[in-house]
């Protein structure tokens, strides 16, 4: 059929031959784009390769049960840093989630059109690009100087400052996604705003909100700049929230510059563990958002 069509007299040839300048340009650009796209993925492959070969080599239970070695000492692990990271991130989550969700409720349900909501939304968006180290400077100035000591609590507050805008904006979005007719139905049954929120809107929006929380947690777990002078570091197990606390990210930072091979191996292993923790939360957020209706 096609063959018959092209043989009809007066039908132009619709195919591009490679000799045509335009077709050639088209092919060259397509090839170039493939090179660019593959090139963009190379760093990830290289980072993962290094993590698995250099970090995986040291993986074992000792890493999680022992303390960081000093100077030329061999062996050792970073159990305290794993615990410290989890404690600091948990604190940050505990602080930021209630305010974040309530703020999201405000933006998405209570007064979406108000002047305050416009201002809040704008500032939250601006704060998502806030340099993380400034959160550290802020908490140092407000909390560390006041308490007189570096602490896990200060680290948690610093990370909470960074998590808050993300949680707030994603909560707003998922609350807005709840169909208007469900809210109308709740009000039609005589619900007060609070009842409609707690019984209808929030349960429906929960998967979306959790996705945002998981993403914020993943971001916070890998974030180290704000911990530098809030949680600081410690070579010992954590015994209270009010004292300097080790974290994986700061351990990597400290060990990466050391001239000892043992410490550098540990830095790679800690990187692998840190990436696995971050990826776990990322995957979790994807799973939750995939289950969303």
């Amino acid at each position: 059929m096609v063959a018959v069509m092209t043989e009809l007299p007066g039908t132009p040839d619709l195919r591009h031959s490679l000799g045509d300048r335009r077709a050639l340009r088209n092919t060259v650009l397509t090839v170039l784009l493939w090179v660019v796209a593959v090139g963009a993925a190379v760093p990830l492959v290289s980072v993962l390769y290094m993590l698995i070969t250099r970090g995986g080599a040291r993986l074992g239970t000792a890493l999680f049960t022992q303390l960081p070695p000093a100077g030329l000492e061999m062996g050792g692990g970073f159990g305290n840093a794993v615990v410290g990271t989890l404690v600091i991130v948990a604190l940050a989550t505990l602080i930021s989630v209630p305010f974040g969700i309530l703020g999201g409720v405000f933006l998405g349900f209570v007064a979406p059109e108000s002047k305050l909501a416009d201002a809040t939304r704008f500032i939250a968006k601006v704060l998502t690009g806030f340099p993380s180290i400034l959160a550290g400077v802020f908490v140092y100035a407000s909390l560390v100087l006041w308490m007189g000591t570096y602490s896990a609590l200060a680290g948690g507050v610093a990370l909470a400052v960074l998590m808050l805008p993300t949680i707030m904006l994603t909560s707003e979005q998922s609350i807005r996604m709840v169909p208007q007719r469900m809210k109308d139905a709740a009000f039609g049954m005589g619900c007060t705003e609070t009842q409609a929120m707690l019984r209808v809107v929030l349960p429906t929006a929960t998967p979306g909100i959790l996705t945002g929380v998981m993403l914020a947690v993943a971001g916070a777990a890998g974030n180290s700049a704000p911990l530098l002078f809030t949680a600081l570091f410690s070579n010992y197990w954590i015994s209270s929230l009010g004292e300097p606390t080790a974290s994986l990210a700061i351990l990597i930072y400290n060990f990466s510059g050391m001239p000892f091979p043992n410490q550098i191996e540990l830095a790679w292993a800690a990187s692998l563990v840190l990436v696995l923790i971050v990826l776990a939360f990322n995957v979790l957020s994807r799973l939750i958002s995939a289950r969303r209706v």
Partner: peptide
């Protein structure tokens, strides 16, 4: 894959930068 680039912590990129 591209989104995962954003999930790698900054310190890990630093370490990778030093040794790769």
């Amino acid at each position: 894959v591209i989104e995962m680039l954003a999930a790698i912590p900054s310190v890990v990129y630093g370490l990778w930068g030093i040794y790769v």
